[in-house]
Structure formats: C-alpha cells, structure tokens
Design a binder for these strands. Structure first.
Length: 222
DNA sequence: ATCCCGAGGG
DNA sequence: CCCTCTGGAT
C-alpha cells in the first residue's frame, strides 16, 4: 500500500514537475487578498485584476478604509465580486484591529478573518509562510479519492489521510500537483483516463476497467 | 446548461 | 445540510 503511494507520488512529480501557485503576489497581504479572490474563479482571472487592486489598496490600512463598492469595481470580472469585496474590506479591518496590520501566520488566527476558511488559510500558510500545509479543495478531494489515497467522506478526513501518507516536506507541491491534475486530466465529469499518466496506479481506473465479476460497471468515476 | 482551486449564513 | 453569492469556462 505504501508502495503504491510512493509510485503515485513519483508519477505525479513526473507529470507536474514544477507545480506551484499561479497567483501573483509580493507579500503575505497580497497573497491573502489573491487567495480570497480565487474562490470559484481561475487564478488567471485573479491575476488580471490584482495589479490595479494592489495599486489602489497597497496595504491592509488602505483596504480597511475602502468602500466595498469601489473594491468591487476593481475586481469586476472575478466571480462573486461583491461578496468578496465585502470580505476583503472586513478582513483588512480585522488585520488592522487585531493583528497590527499584518497577516498572521497561524491557522487559528487566519481562520478568524472574514472570508477565510480552512482552504484559504492553508494556502496562505503554505505559499506566504512556507509552512507545510495540505489544503483540500474540491479537486484534491476528488482526485485523492479516485487515486485511492483516501476513502474519506469529508475534506477533513481526506486531509488527515493525505497528511499521514505524504511527508510534510512534500505537502505544498503535492497539493498543487493534485489540483493541476484535477483540472487538466482527472476532471469531475468525463475524466481523461486515456491520457492519464497515473492510470496504472489509479484505484478508480482499475476498478472501472477490471470490474469484479457480476458487478455492474460504473460509467462515472467517483 | 452546468460547474467551479469556497465561505458564510439559514 | 442546504442555499446563495456571481461570472467565466467548458
């Protein structure tokens, strides 16, 4: 079993050698903002709006003083922009009031910020503070389960399994590799198993192509 | 048409 | 557990 995990991680590394965040940022504050924006949107869309946004609001203090409606205009083009604009201003105010105007580097503190949930907090920890963190989003959840890395029913359970099976030094890069694989190949619907470099080690693929006798073939990998 | 590199609130 | 926010991608 551990052998299988090693093989999967090796194949993942070969397929996505330089996986990393595509978000553009120069400080923990910028990454926090970009990560909050990235929910339900592509990094590409986020990177399109952040330069002007950071020009207008370069610090938590500037953003805390902003009108959410003005912020919403700057981030038009990313989904959920009004909701996110409210989160951003509220989070900036909390940074100022509770954290001396800087981004905290602990999970519990990050989770107190409006608009910051477990996934966002872990992405900030990993990419802004180089802390081992394995954020389980929808892609990681689905891909990890298909590959057989976890049978967890909740993101927390999958997170626990992955953290147990993967050395902490590899959490960040593995997170990004699983996401890229989930987007490009191991899609939610119509996964491209035919071009998947992990197929030979994939639990879901093996069950699909070699179904147990007397059992109906699942046409949907899940 | 349907779905997201989510989170807050009912 | 469900819904909503909101716009681009497939």
């Amino acid at each position: 079993m551990a052998k299988n995990v090693d093989k999967l991680l090796e194949l993942l590394a070969q397929a996505y050698p330089e996986a990393r965040t595509e978000l553009q940022f120069r400080s923990p504050f910028e990454l926090l903002v970009a990560t909050i924006l990235s929910a339900q949107t592509t990094d590409r869309q986020v990177n399109r709006v952040t330069p002007l946004l950071f020009q207008h609001y370069p610090t938590p203090y500037a953003l805390a003083a902003a009108d959410p409606e003005d912020v919403a205009k700057d981030i038009a083009g990313v989904g959920l922009n009004r909701t996110k604009a409210r989160y951003l201003v509220a989070a900036a105010r909390k940074l100022v009031s509770d954290f001396g105007g800087s981004v905290p580097d602990s999970l519990d503190s990050l989770l107190t910020l409006p608009g910051v949930g477990r996934k966002t907090a872990k992405v900030v920890l990993a990419n802004a503070f180089s802390r081992p963190a394995l954020a389980v989003d929808t892609h990681v959840f689905r891909v990890a389960r298909r590959l057989g890395l976890s049978q967890g029913r909740t993101p927390e359970e999958v997170e626990r399994d992955l953290e147990a099976k993967i050395p902490s030094t590899h959490w960040i890069v593995t997170h990004h590799r699983l996401i890229q694989h989930g987007r490009r190949v191991c899609r939610a619907r119509n996964p491209r198993c035919g071009e998947c470099p992990l197929a030979t080690e994939c639990t879901a693929f093996l069950q699909k192509t070699q179904p147990k006798a007397g059992r109906k073939v699942e046409n949907n990998l899940a």
